[in-house]
């Protein structure tokens, strides 16, 4: 068991972390995300992502989107269970998630599949593409309403309800990755597991609230 001293030290650490985080303006995240996407594209165009850059770029954007989904879903549990406050960055994390899903989709459609009819056929006929597309579409209303005007217009409750679409979108994104892997592979299952755990962490405190 942790001693009082250890707990105090830990909470000092958390407070220090939160104080540090408060000094970071959210626009830094947008800049970093856009810069990183551009850098990856530059690398892909100049041979820095290996000899098959289309697949590499497509996968890098897709993986980044999944990683951002996981971070975004971790914001609330981190605050609730560890006291770490990433709240000021949640919108930026969400918008960047959408941005990387969009980039992933565009690389797939334009650089990989290349013809509109084949893109359309894949969406309709290949289930892993269909659910990936489903996840992307679910994120669309979230991206469109990620601004203060929309929060005011919709009202907090309705806005929060709309943004719960991120839960099914996250699951669809992870299943999309699990489904496209050849053979039994660990990494896609790790993403799916993380997302399911983060979703499960949300359901519990609500139950206690109801019980109260």
């Amino acid at each position: 068991m942790a001693s009082l001293g250890q707990m105090a030290a830990q909470s000092d650490m958390v407070q220090g972390l939160n104080a540090g985080l408060r000094r970071v303006p959210p626009w830094v995240l947008y800049l970093a995300g856009a810069g990183w996407a551009g850098w990856l594209f530059y690398l892909a165009a100049t041979g820095g992502l290996g000899v098959e850059p289309i697949e590499a770029l497509e996968h890098r954007y897709g993986e980044l989107a999944l990683q951002l989904i996981v971070v975004g879903l971790a914001v609330t549990p981190l605050r609730r269970h560890l006291g770490v406050n990433l709240m000021p960055f949640r919108r930026a994390i969400g918008v960047l998630t959408f941005f990387f899903v969009l980039a992933h989709f565009l690389v797939w459609a334009i650089l990989d599949v290349q013809t509109l009819s084949a893109v359309w056929a894949d969406i309709l006929e290949r289930p892993y593409v269909t659910i990936g597309m489903g996840g992307f579409l679910l994120l669309l209303p979230l991206a469109v309403t990620s601004n203060n005007w929309s929060v005011r217009k919709l009202g907090g409750a309705a806005w929060r309800r709309v943004h719960k679409l991120v839960y099914p979108a996250a699951v669809l994104g992870a299943v999309h990755y699990v489904w496209l892997a050849k053979g039994f592979q660990i990494e896609p299952l790790v993403y799916l597991g993380l997302i399911l755990v983060l979703l499960a962490l949300r359901s519990r405190p609500k139950a206690t609230r109801l019980a109260r």
């Binding site: 000899v51 098959e52 290349q114 489904w179």
Partner: peptide, 20 residues
């Protein structure tokens, strides 16, 4: 293949804008 078309292919080495 049940999960993708086999009608075309990407020749490795064509770069980011290679046609199938």
């Amino acid at each position: 293949h049940p999960r993708w078309s086999q009608a075309t292919e990407r020749r490795v080495g064509g770069g980011l804008f290679a046609r199938r």
